[in-house]
Design a protein around this nucleic acid. Structure first.
Length: 363
DNA sequence: CACGCGTGGAC
DNA sequence: TGTCCAAGCGT
Protein backbone atom coordinates (compact mmCIF):
# COMPACT_ATOMS: atom_id res chain seq x y z
CA UNK A 1 0.00 0.00 0.00
CA UNK A 2 1.24 3.47 -0.82
CA UNK A 3 -0.47 6.81 -0.79
CA UNK A 4 -2.27 8.29 -3.75
CA UNK A 5 -0.18 10.68 -5.83
CA UNK A 6 -1.01 14.35 -5.96
CA UNK A 7 -2.72 14.12 -9.33
CA UNK A 8 -5.10 11.46 -8.00
CA UNK A 9 -5.83 13.42 -4.83
CA UNK A 10 -6.66 16.46 -6.91
CA UNK A 11 -8.89 14.39 -9.18
CA UNK A 12 -10.66 13.00 -6.11
CA UNK A 13 -11.24 16.50 -4.76
CA UNK A 14 -12.61 17.74 -8.09
CA UNK A 15 -14.79 14.69 -8.56
CA UNK A 16 -16.20 14.93 -5.05
CA UNK A 17 -16.93 18.66 -5.31
CA UNK A 18 -18.80 18.32 -8.56
CA UNK A 19 -20.68 15.26 -7.37
CA UNK A 20 -21.68 16.85 -4.06
CA UNK A 21 -23.22 19.85 -5.84
CA UNK A 22 -25.99 17.73 -7.31
CA UNK A 23 -26.06 14.68 -5.03
CA UNK A 24 -25.93 16.07 -1.50
CA UNK A 25 -28.93 15.11 0.58
CA UNK A 26 -30.99 18.06 1.76
CA UNK A 27 -30.39 17.57 5.48
CA UNK A 28 -31.75 20.16 7.92
CA UNK A 29 -28.36 20.93 9.48
CA UNK A 30 -26.99 21.68 6.02
CA UNK A 31 -29.35 24.64 5.78
CA UNK A 32 -27.61 26.55 8.55
CA UNK A 33 -24.16 27.95 9.11
CA UNK A 34 -24.70 28.51 12.81
CA UNK A 35 -21.67 26.81 14.39
CA UNK A 36 -23.68 25.94 17.50
CA UNK A 37 -26.38 24.20 15.46
CA UNK A 38 -23.72 22.33 13.50
CA UNK A 39 -22.00 21.34 16.73
CA UNK A 40 -25.27 19.90 18.05
CA UNK A 41 -25.78 17.97 14.83
CA UNK A 42 -22.29 16.50 14.96
CA UNK A 43 -22.74 15.28 18.53
CA UNK A 44 -26.12 13.74 17.69
CA UNK A 45 -24.72 12.07 14.59
CA UNK A 46 -22.02 10.23 16.52
CA UNK A 47 -22.76 6.54 15.99
CA UNK A 48 -26.34 7.47 15.09
CA UNK A 49 -28.17 7.34 11.79
CA UNK A 50 -29.18 10.46 9.91
CA UNK A 51 -32.88 9.48 9.87
CA UNK A 52 -32.87 9.19 13.66
CA UNK A 53 -31.15 12.52 14.20
CA UNK A 54 -33.64 14.24 11.91
CA UNK A 55 -36.29 13.54 14.55
CA UNK A 56 -34.31 15.24 17.31
CA UNK A 57 -32.15 18.04 15.95
CA UNK A 58 -34.89 20.54 15.16
CA UNK A 59 -36.73 20.06 18.45
CA UNK A 60 -33.51 20.28 20.41
CA UNK A 61 -32.66 23.61 18.75
CA UNK A 62 -36.14 24.96 19.39
CA UNK A 63 -35.74 24.13 23.06
CA UNK A 64 -32.09 25.26 23.28
CA UNK A 65 -31.61 27.72 20.41
CA UNK A 66 -28.14 28.91 21.37
CA UNK A 67 -25.14 28.28 23.61
CA UNK A 68 -26.50 30.55 26.34
CA UNK A 69 -29.81 28.72 26.62
CA UNK A 70 -28.14 25.33 26.70
CA UNK A 71 -25.60 26.49 29.26
CA UNK A 72 -28.38 27.83 31.46
CA UNK A 73 -30.46 24.67 31.28
CA UNK A 74 -30.68 21.95 33.91
CA UNK A 75 -28.97 18.73 32.93
CA UNK A 76 -32.29 16.91 33.38
CA UNK A 77 -33.93 19.18 30.82
CA UNK A 78 -31.19 18.36 28.33
CA UNK A 79 -31.50 14.63 28.99
CA UNK A 80 -35.24 14.92 28.57
CA UNK A 81 -34.75 16.31 25.05
CA UNK A 82 -32.25 13.53 24.37
CA UNK A 83 -34.63 10.78 25.49
CA UNK A 84 -34.65 7.89 23.04
CA UNK A 85 -31.56 9.03 21.15
CA UNK A 86 -29.15 6.82 23.08
CA UNK A 87 -25.55 7.26 24.22
CA UNK A 88 -26.76 9.69 26.83
CA UNK A 89 -23.27 10.66 27.94
CA UNK A 90 -23.17 12.71 24.74
CA UNK A 91 -25.96 14.89 26.09
CA UNK A 92 -24.13 15.45 29.36
CA UNK A 93 -20.89 16.29 27.57
CA UNK A 94 -22.69 18.63 25.16
CA UNK A 95 -24.26 20.38 28.13
CA UNK A 96 -20.89 20.66 29.86
CA UNK A 97 -19.42 21.83 26.57
CA UNK A 98 -21.99 24.61 26.31
CA UNK A 99 -21.15 25.73 29.83
CA UNK A 100 -17.47 25.71 28.90
CA UNK A 101 -18.06 27.78 25.77
CA UNK A 102 -20.39 30.14 27.60
CA UNK A 103 -18.17 30.70 30.64
CA UNK A 104 -14.67 30.46 29.15
CA UNK A 105 -15.16 31.67 25.58
CA UNK A 106 -17.90 34.27 25.83
CA UNK A 107 -20.39 32.02 24.10
CA UNK A 108 -18.65 31.83 20.71
CA UNK A 109 -17.24 28.58 19.37
CA UNK A 110 -13.53 28.75 18.50
CA UNK A 111 -12.69 28.35 14.82
CA UNK A 112 -9.66 26.07 15.06
CA UNK A 113 -9.70 22.34 15.58
CA UNK A 114 -7.14 22.61 18.39
CA UNK A 115 -9.32 24.98 20.40
CA UNK A 116 -12.51 23.09 19.59
CA UNK A 117 -10.81 19.97 20.89
CA UNK A 118 -10.75 21.50 24.37
CA UNK A 119 -14.56 21.41 24.54
CA UNK A 120 -15.95 18.43 26.47
CA UNK A 121 -17.38 15.84 24.10
CA UNK A 122 -15.47 17.19 21.10
CA UNK A 123 -12.88 14.65 19.97
CA UNK A 124 -10.61 14.55 16.92
CA UNK A 125 -13.42 13.90 14.46
CA UNK A 126 -15.90 16.45 15.81
CA UNK A 127 -13.26 19.17 16.10
CA UNK A 128 -12.39 18.69 12.44
CA UNK A 129 -16.04 18.56 11.45
CA UNK A 130 -16.96 21.83 13.15
CA UNK A 131 -13.83 23.60 11.93
CA UNK A 132 -14.31 22.50 8.33
CA UNK A 133 -18.09 22.56 8.01
CA UNK A 134 -18.95 25.58 10.16
CA UNK A 135 -15.81 27.66 9.58
CA UNK A 136 -14.56 26.37 6.23
CA UNK A 137 -11.14 25.67 7.72
CA UNK A 138 -8.89 23.06 6.09
CA UNK A 139 -9.07 20.93 9.24
CA UNK A 140 -9.05 17.20 8.51
CA UNK A 141 -11.74 14.89 9.84
CA UNK A 142 -11.97 11.12 9.71
CA UNK A 143 -15.08 9.20 10.67
CA UNK A 144 -16.06 5.68 9.74
CA UNK A 145 -17.19 6.84 6.29
CA UNK A 146 -13.97 8.62 5.46
CA UNK A 147 -11.81 5.76 6.74
CA UNK A 148 -13.72 3.37 4.49
CA UNK A 149 -13.56 5.66 1.45
CA UNK A 150 -9.82 6.16 1.81
CA UNK A 151 -9.18 2.50 2.62
CA UNK A 152 -10.82 1.59 -0.70
CA UNK A 153 -9.23 4.37 -2.73
CA UNK A 154 -5.76 3.37 -1.52
CA UNK A 155 -6.57 -0.36 -1.30
CA UNK A 156 -5.58 -0.58 2.35
CA UNK A 157 -5.87 -4.22 3.34
CA UNK A 158 -4.42 -4.22 6.84
CA UNK A 159 -7.33 -4.05 9.36
CA UNK A 160 -5.46 -1.86 11.84
CA UNK A 161 -4.65 0.57 9.02
CA UNK A 162 -8.34 0.75 8.10
CA UNK A 163 -9.31 2.12 11.51
CA UNK A 164 -10.40 5.77 11.62
CA UNK A 165 -7.61 6.54 14.09
CA UNK A 166 -4.90 5.59 11.58
CA UNK A 167 -2.75 8.63 10.75
CA UNK A 168 -2.68 8.18 6.95
CA UNK A 169 -6.43 8.84 6.69
CA UNK A 170 -5.94 12.21 8.32
CA UNK A 171 -3.03 13.03 6.01
CA UNK A 172 -5.13 12.06 3.01
CA UNK A 173 -8.05 14.26 4.04
CA UNK A 174 -5.72 17.18 4.69
CA UNK A 175 -4.42 16.82 1.15
CA UNK A 176 -7.93 16.61 -0.31
CA UNK A 177 -9.08 19.70 1.57
CA UNK A 178 -6.21 21.63 -0.01
CA UNK A 179 -7.87 21.35 -3.42
CA UNK A 180 -11.13 23.18 -2.85
CA UNK A 181 -13.59 24.40 -0.26
CA UNK A 182 -13.08 22.47 2.99
CA UNK A 183 -16.76 22.95 3.83
CA UNK A 184 -17.77 21.14 0.66
CA UNK A 185 -15.01 18.54 0.52
CA UNK A 186 -15.33 17.42 4.13
CA UNK A 187 -19.06 16.81 3.73
CA UNK A 188 -18.59 15.27 0.30
CA UNK A 189 -16.16 12.67 1.64
CA UNK A 190 -18.65 11.61 4.31
CA UNK A 191 -21.62 11.81 1.97
CA UNK A 192 -19.89 9.52 -0.50
CA UNK A 193 -19.26 6.99 2.25
CA UNK A 194 -22.81 7.24 3.50
CA UNK A 195 -24.61 6.95 0.16
CA UNK A 196 -22.28 5.40 -2.45
CA UNK A 197 -19.18 3.90 -0.87
CA UNK A 198 -21.28 1.98 1.66
CA UNK A 199 -20.04 -0.85 3.86
CA UNK A 200 -21.98 -3.48 1.97
CA UNK A 201 -22.81 -3.45 -1.73
CA UNK A 202 -21.13 -0.15 -2.62
CA UNK A 203 -22.51 1.53 -5.75
CA UNK A 204 -19.21 1.71 -7.58
CA UNK A 205 -20.93 2.19 -10.94
CA UNK A 206 -22.19 5.60 -9.84
CA UNK A 207 -19.10 6.64 -7.90
CA UNK A 208 -17.56 9.92 -9.00
CA UNK A 209 -14.06 8.82 -8.01
CA UNK A 210 -14.03 5.20 -9.17
CA UNK A 211 -11.27 5.96 -11.67
CA UNK A 212 -9.01 6.85 -8.73
CA UNK A 213 -10.06 3.81 -6.70
CA UNK A 214 -7.56 0.95 -6.38
CA UNK A 215 -10.02 -1.35 -4.66
CA UNK A 216 -12.44 -0.90 -7.56
CA UNK A 217 -9.64 -1.50 -10.06
CA UNK A 218 -8.79 -4.82 -8.45
CA UNK A 219 -12.41 -5.78 -7.77
CA UNK A 220 -11.89 -5.76 -4.01
CA UNK A 221 -14.29 -2.99 -2.97
CA UNK A 222 -16.54 -5.35 -1.04
CA UNK A 223 -13.58 -6.90 0.78
CA UNK A 224 -12.35 -3.57 2.16
CA UNK A 225 -12.62 -2.83 4.99
CA UNK A 226 -12.22 -6.27 6.52
CA UNK A 227 -15.06 -7.63 8.66
CA UNK A 228 -14.62 -6.85 12.33
CA UNK A 229 -14.59 -9.53 14.98
CA UNK A 230 -17.65 -9.02 17.11
CA UNK A 231 -17.98 -10.59 20.49
CA UNK A 232 -21.21 -11.88 21.85
CA UNK A 233 -23.27 -9.76 24.21
CA UNK A 234 -23.96 -11.25 27.63
CA UNK A 235 -27.67 -11.72 28.31
CA UNK A 236 -29.18 -11.32 31.75
CA UNK A 237 -32.61 -11.82 33.28
CA UNK A 238 -34.14 -8.97 35.28
CA UNK A 239 -37.40 -8.37 37.09
CA UNK A 240 -38.99 -4.97 36.60
CA UNK A 241 -41.58 -3.56 38.95
CA UNK A 242 -44.49 -1.34 37.97
CA UNK A 243 -45.47 -0.32 41.49
CA UNK A 244 -48.62 1.75 41.73
CA UNK A 245 -50.23 3.74 44.48
CA UNK A 246 -53.52 5.18 43.39
CA UNK A 247 -52.93 6.56 39.91
CA UNK A 248 -49.22 7.05 40.49
CA UNK A 249 -46.39 4.78 39.46
CA UNK A 250 -42.97 4.56 41.08
CA UNK A 251 -39.92 5.32 38.94
CA UNK A 252 -36.28 5.13 39.91
CA UNK A 253 -33.36 7.25 38.86
CA UNK A 254 -30.52 4.96 37.90
CA UNK A 255 -27.03 5.33 39.38
CA UNK A 256 -24.78 8.09 38.08
CA UNK A 257 -22.37 5.59 36.54
CA UNK A 258 -22.87 2.87 33.97
CA UNK A 259 -25.69 1.88 31.67
CA UNK A 260 -28.53 4.43 31.39
CA UNK A 261 -26.75 6.48 34.06
CA UNK A 262 -28.97 9.02 35.76
CA UNK A 263 -32.00 8.17 33.65
CA UNK A 264 -35.49 7.33 34.89
CA UNK A 265 -36.57 3.71 34.69
CA UNK A 266 -38.86 1.32 36.51
CA UNK A 267 -37.15 -0.28 39.52
CA UNK A 268 -35.16 -3.26 38.26
CA UNK A 269 -33.88 -6.25 40.21
CA UNK A 270 -31.40 -8.93 39.22
CA UNK A 271 -32.60 -11.96 41.09
CA UNK A 272 -31.40 -14.76 38.86
CA UNK A 273 -33.57 -16.97 36.67
CA UNK A 274 -35.61 -19.21 38.94
CA UNK A 275 -39.16 -20.32 38.24
CA UNK A 276 -41.93 -17.76 38.27
CA UNK A 277 -43.11 -18.42 41.81
CA UNK A 278 -39.59 -18.12 43.19
CA UNK A 279 -38.93 -14.92 41.30
CA UNK A 280 -42.21 -13.44 42.46
CA UNK A 281 -41.36 -14.13 46.07
CA UNK A 282 -37.78 -12.88 45.72
CA UNK A 283 -38.96 -9.73 43.97
CA UNK A 284 -41.54 -8.94 46.63
CA UNK A 285 -38.88 -9.24 49.31
CA UNK A 286 -36.16 -7.35 47.43
CA UNK A 287 -38.51 -4.56 46.37
CA UNK A 288 -40.01 -4.11 49.83
CA UNK A 289 -36.52 -3.86 51.24
CA UNK A 290 -35.18 -1.47 48.59
CA UNK A 291 -38.22 0.79 48.44
CA UNK A 292 -39.20 0.57 52.08
CA UNK A 293 -42.87 -0.28 51.74
CA UNK A 294 -45.02 -3.40 51.86
CA UNK A 295 -45.97 -4.57 48.37
CA UNK A 296 -48.64 -6.82 46.93
CA UNK A 297 -47.63 -8.32 43.57
CA UNK A 298 -49.80 -9.68 40.79
CA UNK A 299 -49.73 -13.45 40.41
CA UNK A 300 -48.19 -13.34 36.94
CA UNK A 301 -45.83 -10.96 35.14
CA UNK A 302 -46.47 -9.71 31.62
CA UNK A 303 -44.47 -11.30 28.77
CA UNK A 304 -40.75 -10.54 29.03
CA UNK A 305 -39.43 -7.38 27.40
CA UNK A 306 -36.23 -7.92 25.45
CA UNK A 307 -33.96 -4.91 25.20
CA UNK A 308 -30.77 -4.99 23.16
CA UNK A 309 -28.01 -2.55 24.09
CA UNK A 310 -24.79 -2.04 22.15
CA UNK A 311 -22.95 -4.61 24.25
CA UNK A 312 -25.51 -6.56 26.27
CA UNK A 313 -29.06 -7.89 26.23
CA UNK A 314 -31.62 -7.59 28.98
CA UNK A 315 -34.69 -9.75 29.38
CA UNK A 316 -36.98 -7.95 31.79
CA UNK A 317 -40.08 -9.53 33.32
CA UNK A 318 -42.62 -6.76 33.95
CA UNK A 319 -44.43 -7.30 37.23
CA UNK A 320 -47.24 -5.11 38.46
CA UNK A 321 -47.93 -4.45 42.09
CA UNK A 322 -49.44 -2.05 44.55
CA UNK A 323 -47.79 -0.26 47.44
CA UNK A 324 -49.64 -0.48 50.72
CA UNK A 325 -48.82 3.15 51.45
CA UNK A 326 -46.97 6.02 49.76
CA UNK A 327 -43.22 5.72 50.23
CA UNK A 328 -41.14 8.64 51.33
CA UNK A 329 -38.78 9.64 48.52
CA UNK A 330 -35.15 10.26 49.33
CA UNK A 331 -32.00 10.43 47.24
CA UNK A 332 -29.11 8.09 47.78
CA UNK A 333 -25.40 8.83 47.54
CA UNK A 334 -24.89 7.21 44.12
CA UNK A 335 -27.56 9.43 42.59
CA UNK A 336 -30.32 6.85 42.80
CA UNK A 337 -33.68 8.05 43.97
CA UNK A 338 -37.35 7.24 43.58
CA UNK A 339 -40.17 9.45 42.40
CA UNK A 340 -43.92 9.02 41.98
CA UNK A 341 -45.03 9.64 38.44
CA UNK A 342 -48.62 10.74 37.89
CA UNK A 343 -50.52 8.70 35.33
CA UNK A 344 -50.05 10.09 31.80
CA UNK A 345 -47.26 12.44 32.88
CA UNK A 346 -43.59 12.46 31.94
CA UNK A 347 -40.50 12.45 34.14
CA UNK A 348 -38.61 15.73 34.03
CA UNK A 349 -35.28 14.05 33.25
CA UNK A 350 -34.04 11.53 30.74
CA UNK A 351 -36.26 8.62 29.78
CA UNK A 352 -34.60 5.78 27.86
CA UNK A 353 -36.52 3.65 25.41
CA UNK A 354 -36.42 0.72 27.82
CA UNK A 355 -38.58 2.67 30.26
CA UNK A 356 -41.22 3.33 27.61
CA UNK A 357 -41.21 -0.33 26.62
CA UNK A 358 -41.71 -1.41 30.24
CA UNK A 359 -44.44 1.14 30.91
CA UNK A 360 -46.29 0.00 27.81
CA UNK A 361 -45.83 -3.66 28.68
CA UNK A 362 -47.11 -3.27 32.22
CA UNK A 363 -50.10 -1.02 31.54
C1' DC B 1 -5.95 1.00 24.17
C1' DA B 2 -9.81 -1.98 24.52
C1' DC B 3 -13.81 -1.26 26.38
C1' DG B 4 -18.32 0.89 27.89
C1' DC B 5 -21.86 3.28 26.16
C1' DG B 6 -28.34 3.06 23.02
C1' DT B 7 -31.14 2.65 19.46
C1' DG B 8 -33.70 1.25 15.40
C1' DG B 9 -33.21 0.20 10.41
C1' DA B 10 -31.54 -2.73 6.58
C1' DC B 11 -30.77 -7.12 4.90
C1' DT C 1 -34.98 -14.99 13.03
C1' DG C 2 -30.18 -12.92 13.86
C1' DT C 3 -26.46 -9.87 12.37
C1' DC C 4 -24.36 -5.68 11.45
C1' DC C 5 -24.09 -1.65 12.29
C1' DA C 6 -24.20 4.74 12.11
C1' DA C 7 -20.94 11.43 11.07
C1' DG C 8 -17.03 8.76 18.33
C1' DC C 9 -15.62 10.02 22.91
C1' DG C 10 -13.59 9.32 27.41
C1' DT C 11 -11.12 6.52 30.26
Amino acid sequence: MHELDERSVKAVARGLSRWFETNARDLPWRRTRDPYAIWVSEIMLQQTRVETVENYWGRFLERFPDVASLAAADEDAVLNQWSGLGYYRRARLLHRGARHVHAQLGGALPETAARLREIPGVGPYTAGAIASIAFDQPAPLVDGNVARVHSRLAAIEEPAAQDAKAKHHWTFVERVLGHGRPRVLAQALMELGATVCTPRSPSCASCPVRRQCRAHASGRSELIPAAKVKKKSPEIQLDGLALRFGRRILIERRPNEGLLAGLWCLPLFELGAGDLAARREALAAAASEAIGVAISLDEQPKPAVKHVFSHRVWHVLPWSGRARRAVKIKARADGRSFAWLEADSEPEGGVPTLTRKLLRASS
